[in-house]
Design a protein around this nucleic acid. Structure first.
Lengths: 259, 259
DNA sequence: CGATATCTTGATATCATTCAAGCACAGTGG
DNA sequence: CCACTGTGCTTGAATGATATCAAGATATCG
């Protein structure tokens, strides 16, 4: 299920390499740290890890145990769901990983975790040794790798609040806002988004039934808020109306916006 | 709401100071790291932070914004709920913090967060500066502080799976197992637990209605699995039956057991 | 272009919430 | 010591939201 693409210098090099000016100081203000954690600083600083990384391409499903111990994975491309199948009947997607996100298989505490992605995703695979060496050389890198999981945690908290406090329509809106902000492309007043999950995946992520997901998407279509273009493409036509449907839209945009 | 107890040497000193032999090496096996993260290594290693820490005692409710920027808080005593009131009607407890857990207010991404605890809780409050200095001196300490949030994240993932996949009775069982493992005291075949939250708090933590919580606790009482002793004391009489009620009991015990 | 998987949508069932009434408990003052 | 009062807990009946089931439609891929 995993195909190794080869060491450094593979075909995947077009990262979003925005410039960001990060001063290194352990004593800098907390607000700065937060901004940095929440921003997408990941890949530009991480770029130097590329040389020590193995590129790993995922099909649509992969057991976390097969990732091996002693490695750290960093998402380079695609959107990956972390799916817990602790029980055969329980199929929860506990988080979505986006480019720059860090995955440490050892710290994924639940047994029988699987990674899922609709379209293929690419990871950098690093040994902890290599990561530690590089991190020792470059404090910025250290921060990028070690602060990122904290940002991911913050997103998990938000996701809990989403599932805990919102009804099914609000959750769907939350999901559309999240992926719209993350992977949406401006397309003439609308935002075009490639769905990173099937209906079942979306349902598992939002703790809903797949039929319910379908039903609500249909109602959003009939309201003219979104439009479907094929099975995996969605067009958000009325962003304002969409955000109005979700009480947590502000927080979602805040956390996912800069990443 | 916050009463400062004074600098180092306050009355709170009886930590669980089990000895643990932790070798410092950036290259140690991943399994070791996981074990350490999941274990309750926190307080013994953290003890030296005590000298740099301010002791802070919480009443039962406190806005996270009042914690101030630039500080790191470590739970010394008690159980603290992180409650998000992003919307007036949405009242979700996104996580419970136990002794040794780390709270970095800046990284709590949701606005209008509150900390709640039924009985008073004690934190160590450290400036990031002090923490960075101490961490630079002591690699073990560094690990204790920086790995702990990752363990907390793992618990959040489990909590998502719990809420996502379990019905109301299973969730209540999950909660009882969690606090039983965390703060339960052996009491002649039974396990005695002090509830760290009111019915409403439990409901918010499990994404249930307070009435439902009450109903299910009553049914557990009538099944003879638990027994009530006053309003905040609960006796788990049949641990085996309780764990049998929750499909995720194994995972819960694994994650909360050593902490 | 046909086979298969995925999605849609109605009817029905179920679970959890809501509402409302009554109860238990802790603290207070007689 | 006991009634009083407020708060939080309990529990039944009604409601509502979401899941389930089943049949049919549509997209995707070989």
């Amino acid at each position: 299920m995993i195909q190794v693409k080869g060491m450094a210098g593979g075909p995947i090099t077009n990262f979003q390499t925005e410039v960001s000016h990060i001063t290194m100081s352990s004593y800098e203000s907390a607000a700065k740290i937060r901004d940095r954690v929440q921003s997408g600083m990941g890949l530009n600083v991480l770029a130097r890890l590329q040389e020590r990384a193995q590129f790993v391409r995922f099909g649509n499903r992969c057991a976390a145990t097969s990732l091996g111990a002693g490695f750290v994975y960093i998402v380079a491309k695609g959107v990956v769901g972390i799916e817990s199948a602790a029980h055969p009947d329980i199929r929860a997607v506990t988080a979505l990983l986006y480019p720059g996100d860090v995955l440490i298989p050892e710290l994924q505490a639940l047994p029988d975790l699987e990674l899922t992605s609709q379209h293929s995703a690419v990871f950098w695979k690093l040994t902890m040794t290599a990561l530690a060496e590089e991190a020792a050389k470059d404090p910025q890198l250290w921060q990028a790798v070690f602060l990122r999981p904290l940002a991911q945690h913050a997103r998990s908290q938000l996701h809990i609040a989403t599932m805990s406090g919102l009804n099914s329509e609000e959750r769907i809106a939350a999901f559309l806002i999240e992926i719209g902000v993350r992977i949406g492309m401006q397309a003439g007043g609308s935002i075009s988004v490639e769905l990173p999950l099937t209906r079942y995946g979306i349902a598992d992520y939002l703790s809903l039934n797949a039929d319910t997901v379908s039903r609500i998407l249909s109602s959003l279509v009939s309201e003219g808020i979104v439009k479907r273009r094929g099975r995996f493409q969605i067009l958000i036509r009325d962003w304002r109306a969409l955000t109005a449907k979700c009480p947590l839209s502000e927080a979602i945009i805040l956390l996912h916006g800069a990443g």
